[in-house]
Amino acid sequence: MNLQSVKTIYLAEMARSLRTVLQSIVSPVVSTSLYFVVFGAAIGSRISEVDGVSYGAFIVPGLIMLMLLTQSVATASFGIFFPRFSGSIYEILSAPISYFEIVLGYVGAAATKSLILGLIVLATARLFVPFTIQYPLVMLLFLVLTAITFSLLGFIIGIWADGFEKLQLVPLLIITPLTFLGGTFYSIDMLPPFWQAVTLLNPVVYLVSGFRWSFYGMGDVSIWASLGMIALFLGVSLAVVNWIFKSGYRLKP
């Protein structure tokens, strides 16, 4: 394992996040705070408890998950897309470094940044609503697995995209809608039976539900289904990344 190379990519990517600290950290925190103000304080105060939890507290796990998914994808996709765009990817591909190490550097940095953001948003949320975390270790496990999995997805998007438009396409048209419709702001029990069945086809439901379970001990689906879904996501993402490097897709003619 070429740890020096992995560390170099990792630190360079972290430094890039620090260079753009306003965009990287402040903006997601501000937007999450706005969600709390609007949905938690303004609208939430008029909504009764959901599954025995105040509405403000109910949306905390969903909002963290929303931020985690979008940030993981955005950071990792931009991280690998930019060297491709600028042409400096030649250096990465000609270095004595394995594909696994390249992924470890980029995805590791993106996942770290998302994790830090997740914890910052968690702390921010605590300023708005009181809540407790019943299973903190499970919560951390979900945070870590989700950050890694969606950073891998972002990495795949960053390789696939051949322009800035495509780079935005998946997060904007797929990730955000799926998260909004994945039980971030509501329990799927609130939906009519038909839409409940449809919603269960949305993989993000399982992530939000599992994450919420770690907070309050209850979710829309069983914790095992949630863990199974995140494991499936992770497996598929790893398989795709492996195929990308084996085939040289968009990297190596």
Binding site: N2, Q4, S5, K7, T8, I9, L11, A12, A15, R19, F82, P83, S86, G87, S88, Y90, E91, I92, S94, A95, P96, I97
Partner: peptide, 29 residues
């Protein structure tokens, strides 16, 4: 091997020192 490509391919926002140091680290040194 060290490679100097034909195109001017640089990450515009990094400093000269950082980008050259990055290359050294990337090659495991």
């Amino acid at each position: 091997i060290g490679l100097v490509p034909q195109e001017l391919t640089n990450e515009a926002f990094t400093t000269v020192w950082d980008t050259v140091s990055f290359s050294r680290g990337l090659f495991g040194k």
